[in-house]
Design a protein around this nucleic acid. Structure first.
Lengths: 207, 207
DNA sequence: CATCTAATGTACGAACTGGTACGTTAGTTA
DNA sequence: TAACTAACGTACCAGTTCGTACATTAGATG
């Protein structure tokens, strides 16, 4: 055995990284504690030392995944764009995020499969997410005041419209490949789908 | 022990019914063969007798679930409607189907989690599904010829647009309930979302 | 440099879980 | 009604998997 080096932070982070992949790929019950440990430079013992157990590790993974994606979203500056362009920009950012974070999408699926029972224990997640919708709500208000947007639309509905398109494309990639012989993530169609989403949303919003 | 009655068909069907729920609810690895058997009037032995094993049982479940939903779709008659109304009708049928078959939606998620590796062994599924898109393609052609629809739209893309909205609403119900305190399946919002989808799709298609 | 503790490694057990060997019986058929 | 087979039940095994008891050590602290 090579002489070990101690680095609590590194060990914790490494466990989280590997666990994220493992849980995303295999689901909660499908994920193997031994497998996670084997793919790190530490041992299974450390999962229990740092997190307490499989479930708490999963919780930590989930929290970090959401925190990362919402933090990135908040960096978007839409105030200098006109409402139509701003909505399109937000849709594009969501589109790009989903594509860049397949593990996150899978974790959302895993959590829904469990009726979001773990999520309820992480109050911080609610704040994180509602702030993302607030951004969109502001743009919609601006568009309404300006007269460009219809005034019967709800921000959360628009957020769902955008999310569903982006989510589906990543989440159902494999069944679509098998059933329709179409790779929804094929690079050559990326621009097409990105534009399509923008058209869809702005088309729906316009008076 | 009560005297047993023999009924091969009933036993098979009962196993499939229970297995559908079990796999949908717990995923492939999360599903328990013992649990499935316990919830039927027969024993675990019969799973191996009729299907061969856990994996083949899952395959049978998947195939039947897709067959059911596509069969229902084919009953829709759109030829007597004008293209716009026909598209709206197709969207509504898909919407209703997704809502009425949550187990099916979950199975799609489960299968994607496994990179659709089982689906590839069921050639029949491909035919089933492509025929559903053919129906839509016909309507789009008609609308184009008529001059109502734009002529740069692909039927598969429209199908995805519709599916993603319907799928998301059911699949991500729980995380949305937790994060945004909104029950996407709440009965009071059902009509709203159904209309919204129709508006969205027809709005996108119109010239 | 002696001491102490956070951090780490090893070995193992108890429960679970998919699968099977083997025996039994309901209902059909000659 | 005797013989036969599809249908079914019981008991058990072997591998897996989460979790833990216990031993060890790197590096900080005084």
């Amino acid at each position: 055995m090579v002489e070990r080096q101690r680095d609590a932070e590194r060990t914790r982070t490494e466990l989280l990284d590997v666990a994220t992949e493992e849980f995303a790929e295999n689901g909660y019950s499908g994920a193997r504690v031994d497998e996670i440990a084997a793919r790190t430079r530490t041992t299974k013992r450390m999962i229990y030392y740092y997190f307490g157990g499989k479930e708490q590790l999963y919780l930590a993974v989930l929290e970090r995944a959401y925190a990362e994606i919402r933090a990135a979203e908040r960096t978007v500056d839409v105030d200098h764009l006109d409402p139509v362009a701003a909505v399109r920009r937000l849709a594009e950012v969501t589109f790009d995020h989903h594509e860049a974070h397949p593990a996150f999408i899978k974790l959302v699926g895993v959590e829904n499969a469990q009726h979001a029972k773990h999520m309820n224990h992480v109050a911080r997640l609610v704040d994180l997410n509602s702030s993302a919708v607030d951004l969109l709500r502001g743009v919609l208000d601006r568009g309404r005041a300006e007269g460009t947007f219809r005034d019967d639309v709800d921000a959360l509905d628009v957020h769902m419209m955008i999310s569903s398109f982006c989510f589906f494309r990543v989440a159902n990639r494999h069944t679509w490949g098998a059933l329709f012989d179409r790779d929804l993530l094929d690079e050559s169609r990326r621009g097409h789908y990105r534009t399509m989403l923008g058209d869809l949303v702005t088309g729906y919003l316009r008076k």
